[in-house]
């Protein structure tokens, strides 16, 4: 058998479920959400406002299915990541909530939109920390791998949309797309270098 391992079925299913749902969310937020202000009927407004929750729920479903199909070490690192995220977001929410209650901060309900993204970022950081403890390079595992060229392609598409939308879209939308595109291109570079380093180590016989 070859040294490289094909992506496991659970990960293939995860990416098959994750990317379309995330794509639908991004498209909705970029192209449909800005028109919400023009809708007058409260019922229709509520339905439109709740629509982005559907793809996010599908993303969460994909993540749950992935965790359930993970092996025992992966499940342990997921647990550490979730524990860290729960603790950090819980303490942050309490702190911000108390500051708002004391009228030190003037916040409205839209602050709640940040809870899920912050949870995901801290979860990823917590899992990366747990992975390091077990000697796992979480950024370029065999299965969790989105290939460098896929990052590059996604980044290129985002930059192209930003360039085409310049003048038609609002500045913050163009800026967000350009920022995301640059991040993905940078991630492709980091991923390519890490994989090259790992391949070199493997060729030198350090891994197997």
């Amino acid at each position: 058998m070859s040294k490289s391992m094909p992506m496991r079925r659970s990960y293939r299913r995860y990416y098959r479920e994750f990317f379309p749902a995330m794509g639908a969310y991004v498209l909705f937020m970029l192209f449909a959400w800005p028109y919400l202000g023009h809708v007058q009927a409260p019922a229709l407004k509520a339905v439109l406002a709740l629509l982005p929750v559907v793809p996010v729920a599908l993303v969460i479903r994909a993540m749950v299915r992935l965790v359930l199909a993970s092996d025992e070490l992966e499940q342990r690192t997921h647990l550490v990541g979730l524990a860290v995220a729960t603790a950090v977001v819980g303490v942050l929410s309490l702190a911000v909530g108390f500051l708002a209650a004391a009228r030190v901060l003037d916040l409205d309900g839209t602050i709640l939109l940040w809870v899920f993204p912050v949870l995901m970022v801290v979860y990823a950081a917590g899992r990366a920390w747990a992975n390091r403890r077990y000697g796992v390079d979480g950024f370029c595992t065999d299965e969790s791998a989105v290939r460098a060229w896929q990052f590059l392609l996604a980044g290129g598409v985002l930059l192209l949309v930003a360039w085409l939308g310049n003048g038609h879209m609002k500045d913050y939308q163009v800026g967000m797309l350009a920022g995301m595109g640059c991040s993905w291109v940078a991630a492709a570079g980091v991923l390519a270098v890490r994989r090259w380093q790992r391949a070199r180590r493997r060729d030198a016989g350090e891994q197997d």
Binding site: S2, S4, M5, D71, L73, Y134, G135, V136, D208
Partner: peptide, 29 residues
């Protein structure tokens, strides 16, 4: 004559898990 990937496939775990076991960083269930 198996690679880590070969063993991982036979056990239905990730190659990283095999590596963590071999290096003593993780004790399997």
């Amino acid at each position: 004559g198996w690679s880590q990937a070969d063993l991982a496939q036979r056990l239905d775990v990730s190659r990283q898990t095999i590596n963590a076991i071999e290096t003593g960083k993780y004790d399997p269930s």
